[in-house]
Nucleic acid binder design. Structure first.
Lengths: 258, 258
DNA sequence: CGCGCGATTGAAACAACTCAACTAGAGTGG
DNA sequence: CCACTCTAGTTGAGTTGTTTCAATCGCGCG
């Protein structure tokens, strides 16, 4: 176990990192995360083809989703960190497109997909926020696509490391330049489209150049500027534009002349 | 001009392709698309860095968004066809991440981003549908990421062609295996991460193998099954799971015992 | 008619892959 | 406490898919 059994809601922390939340909305969120489930590391929780009928809020632990495209070719669709909502990206699918696997021990809150409809009616602001989170997810994927498409091995790795670091920072208060890295080089490779062997070489090169330091089963970011430059990384999810969100009904700023 | 000046709403057609729409919702949609603007082909409508303060519904024409990541490296983030909503994928960004360019003459309906908030309150079902469309967009990107990551040049092209074909089919009644291809090989390359020269070779190979036929400035799909197999293409946006959507308030099926 | 962009084709260079052997460390059981 | 096993990481050599650079072709358009 890397965390306490019932950690505080990282989703809540992530959201308030972005936008202020009223008491009511906070309470609504809390009810959403009522049901806690613990899973051990390296477990395949869901498989491609199973019904995609629930979302999961990640309370603690790392997970990833993989897809298989024939002849053993594997692709990591996404990494999931504490505070992430897993499954937003396939609410429109009846069946899961890939497998969901725990990288570490993890605690999740399942949410039946059916509740989303209620939410759109009962809590439009929460619905809007969920929409925003889903958009953030898709920006992350889109970013990765650009990088994988057009950058070299070392730059892809650099980008991935910066992205992970930035995503983790959303739910941490302390500014730490080290994070644990429970993903194998093979998983990293499947995420940025490289072979395991080449991931190794690239990591070594980044380390030799002094951009990172591998220690204690994790990675220390040693030269943030250089990594960002190399990996064409801009933190596009550090803050969000919430100007379009439905306003909080409890605050009386809702009705303004247009 | 490839279409009439004020064509029928393809967004409406796309939505009803997926899910039934009440009179009220249809009317709401129509009001959303009140403002029509025509643009000539090959025009840069928006640039990276400009304020991302509006969405566009595509009434007619093709567009694409490109991103530049240093040293002339260009990446096509997305293709936009009639019925698409451009900009859903960066509602959470204050500034556009890339340029928006018309491939053909095009007619667009701008929608101020600010209206989205209202929508979440006034028309939860429409908001839900917009959310679903955004998820479909992100599935398309995610699909492309998997393919670009793990498949060879000919397979990537095969996938792209099948994807375009399938997306166009959403708003067409006639089953046609030919479509116009106003994208240069360079743009195609920037979309699937290949150089223009190699796109050419791959297209030629697909043609030699009898999977496609290039004619009349377009592409004819000659062997759909083989292309789908080669490009690991599954049509994951032909229909959507709408079971979770807020129900239509005008229909009296809303309140059921849970 | 000639200009210019996009498509076509060729040859050389190279980034990343494949295959494979070896090492380090973590866990297990005797 | 050591030998055994297993998984993950490291490193090397040869191969290949794709890029790069460049030259040529075709065609729509002013």
């Amino acid at each position: 176990m890397t965390e306490a059994a019932t950690p505080q809601s990282c989703l809540y922390r992530k959201i308030v990192h972005y936008i202020p939340l009223s008491e009511d909305d906070a309470a609504y969120l809390e009810r959403l995360e009522a049901d806690l489930r613990a899973f051990p590391a390296r477990r395949r929780l869901k498989r491609a083809g199973e019904a995609a009928d629930e979302l999961f809020v990640v309370r603690s632990g790392w997970l990833y989703s993989v897809r298989y495209l024939g002849e053993g070719r594997r692709h990591v669709e996404g990494l999931h960190f504490p505070g992430d909502v897993i499954g937003l990206s396939d609410v429109t699918l009846k069946a899961r497109s890939g497998d969901l696997i725990t990288a570490t021990d993890a605690v999740l809150c399942p949410i039946p997909k059916a509740r989303m409809g209620q939410m759109f009616c009962e809590a439009p602001r929460i619905a809007g926020i969920l929409f925003a989170l889903s958009v953030v997810d898709s920006i992350i994927v889109s970013e990765r696509l650009a990088v994988v498409s057009r950058l070299h091995a070392d730059a892809r790795i650099a980008h991935l490391l910066m992205q992970i670091h930035a995503r983790l920072a959303l739910t941490r208060d302390s500014e730490d330049d080290w994070f644990a890295m429970p993903l194998s080089q093979e998983v990293i490779g499947d995420a940025v489209s490289l072979t395991q062997a080449y991931v190794n070489r690239s990591l070594k090169e980044l380390e030799d150049r002094g951009l990172i330091l591998r220690r204690d089963n994790g990675v220390e970011i040693r030269d943030k500027a250089a990594l960002a430059e190399l990996g064409a990384f801009q933190n596009r999810f550090e803050s969000i534009d919430d100007s379009w969100l439905p306003s909080d009904p409890t605050s009386e700023t809702t009705f303004r002349s247009t």
